[in-house]
Computed example of a mutant assay.
Amino acid sequence: MTATSALALLRFDGDRTIGHDLVDPASPVLSALDLAATRGDGVFETISVGHGHPQAFEAHLARFVRSAAKLDLPEPDVDVWRAAVLAVAAVIGPVPEAFVKTVLSRGIEGGSSPTGWAYGAVAPDHTAARTRGVHAILLDRGFRSDAGAAAPWLLVGAKTLSYGINRAAAREAAKRGADDVVFVSTDGLLLEGPTANVVILRDGRLLTPPLDAGILPGTTQADLFDWAPSRGLEPLYQPLRPRDLLDADAAWLLSSVRHAAPINAVDHAPLTMDRELTDAMNDFLSARTA
């Protein structure tokens, strides 16, 4: 039996994760005092699921652990979380595209245990973004590309629940008649989108900003870079500036559920799209079984 959504609640013994229970996804399960709701004090991952197979699964779990460490949260037991994700994916069934979102919060304020859950659902239809592309605007992120090393409390490279800035950026894009955002550091380097990594094509090379530029390491981007040589493309991490994006042969925003969305314009300036390569990227990403 399949469903359009499913929810697993993690069980804890103090800080230790000990199991999970499948519950009705429509049931009220989160306390109004949980720090996930009141402070955004937690971490998450969104794992794409293709035909029942979680994609980039181990990379997502590893990043989940790294993000938790940056917030001084209890270390997630990846075996328990893996089982919860698989249980949720099994309820949804082998639909072409779904996702499971794992969340770990510090728990109820003043309590002694964290809170965790894995929620899954059939994915939205991203055909339009993959075929017609997205119009992106450049926005100042407000700090230097090396800010993470100098100020670790900024939690650069952690996938946290504190998404107020990312949501505000998306609203700003909509106000300017655009679909998405690419952040730029105060020292003039391209970073990432609010929910995606930036990749550009130039002279047969796929380029993305280096991980030390203050961006979240992308699981989808990493898989795509592993695939690139099979298409005769050289994958490289290197510093990029806005001019590199504007002069690119093609460019994409890569994310776990939307996959490869070609950028069709930057700040209202048209950008060339490579439809054949985009289709090949998305075919590869959709077909992953791990």
Rank of each mutant, 00 (worst) to 15 (best):
P54I: 06
L22H: 01
T17I: 05
L236N: 06
D223W: 00
R106N: 15
M1N: 14
D247L: 02
D283W: 05
A6T: 11
I92Y: 00
T4K: 00
T46H: 01
A6H: 01
G93E: 00
Q221A: 15
A169Y: 01
G157I: 08
D180M: 08
L211C: 10
P210A: 15
L154N: 12
V181A: 02
A68L: 03
G40W: 07
T127G: 11
P74Y: 04
S67P: 01
R243N: 12
A222L: 04
T17H: 07
R241M: 13
A98I: 05
D34I: 15
L33V: 11
V184H: 00
R258T: 12
L33T: 08
G40E: 04
G111P: 09
V65H: 12
L211D: 11
R141N: 12
Q55E: 10
G120V: 01
A150H: 15
K70G: 15
A168H: 11
S255Y: 02
L240Y: 01
A158C: 09
I108G: 09
T102F: 00
D274G: 10
S67G: 06
L277N: 09
R176I: 06
Q238G: 11
T278Y: 02
D13K: 10
P54N: 11
H259T: 11
D283G: 14
V78E: 13
F183T: 14
D140M: 04
D125M: 04
T272Y: 04
L206E: 06
A260S: 03
V266W: 00
W81Y: 09
A62H: 05
R231F: 04
V257W: 00
G50V: 12
G214E: 13
H259V: 11
L139T: 14
D21C: 11
V156D: 00
A129M: 00
T46C: 07
S255K: 07
V184E: 03
W81A: 12
E45T: 12
P217W: 02
E234S: 15
A222K: 10
A250V: 12
L190Y: 00
A128N: 09
L73C: 06
D125C: 02
P217H: 10
L30R: 15
T38H: 08
P262Y: 06
L138G: 13
D187A: 07
G157W: 04
Y163I: 12
L190N: 06
T289A: 04
S256Y: 02
D187K: 08
T220Y: 05
F143A: 13
T115I: 10
A169G: 08
S255D: 13
R16H: 05
D77Y: 08
P74M: 05
A265Q: 09
F225W: 03
E45H: 11
R205H: 03
L86S: 08
F284P: 07
G120P: 07
A129S: 10
I165Q: 08
F99S: 14
A250C: 07
D283A: 03
V100L: 03
A123Y: 01
V88P: 00
V156F: 00
V88A: 00
Y119W: 01
P194D: 04
L254H: 11
V156K: 05
H268I: 09
A151Q: 14
G204Q: 03
G50W: 11
L71E: 06
D244W: 03
G218T: 14
L30S: 10
L104T: 09
V103P: 01
M273F: 07
G133I: 10
W117N: 05
G188R: 15
V91T: 01
A32H: 09
